[in-house]
Amino acid sequence: MNEALRRSRASVLAALIRDTFQEARARWLFWGLFGLSTLLIAIFLFVLRIDIVQGAISIMGIAPTTHQVDIRKFVNISYAVVSIVLYTWGTFLAVFASSGLIPSVLEAGRISLLLSKPLTRTMLLAGRYAGNVLVIAANHIYLICSIWIIIGVKTHIWELRFLLAIPLSIFIFAVLLCVVVLIGVVFESAALSVMISVALMLISAILAQRQFMMKLLDSEWSRQLWMACYWIVPKVYDLGAALRQIILHEHQTDWVTPLWTSALFGMVVLSGAMYLFQRRDF
């Protein structure tokens, strides 16, 4: 009986995920994301027609004896820069693309039928959330892997750390998607959810300048307020910076703390969204 129930739940979850994919395709979000990613890959390919190695040598005036070491460093810097561009670009695009997928399922006449089925509201929202993350994950994997292969083929330097941009981008999108879900559940507004998610990304970059700000702020309470906001808001900027440092093999700062605090933020926001969704009347 329990096994049958588990299978039934898995099948319901799979149906909800498939439905999200179908809707993303029908709204051209799926193909739009892939189209833009392909465009970016094409631009990247075009840029790399310039011989990056010889170009670097001539620009930097690297002496023949130190070629190996410096070229590797140059390629790693390129990897780091590209990873940050992809991380930022990918997250922005993903938030824009997915903002409509939550409010659409809450439309009157659609939600009442979904709720009449033998599934919990938590399952309904979780299925939608998971579907959304998978749509974006598919695009991130395509984009980042393509760029990695291009750089690798071109330079023969295969920097596996570059691929960390995939889980990290998906992770930060999953955190921001929690905000999209919460705003969607409360206000059913795609535009508002984009505004707030993008604002959080920008605020995260500002709040991350905390060491600098601690020197500027003169009162203790304002410094504490700044730090409180820093710890609450998801660390989009810090994680991007950590990615760059990892790729460059730099002495690493603490990247675990931004990771778990962002995850905690996402969990709290998503739990809030689930709670409010339970209480709402449709």
Partner: peptide, 16 residues
């Protein structure tokens, strides 16, 4: 709700 079939008023089936 498993043994229930429901046709809502003003339904909006996804057009895709």
């Amino acid at each position: 709700r498993r043994p229930v079939g429901y046709l809502p008023e003003n339904h909006r089936f996804p057009t895709y």
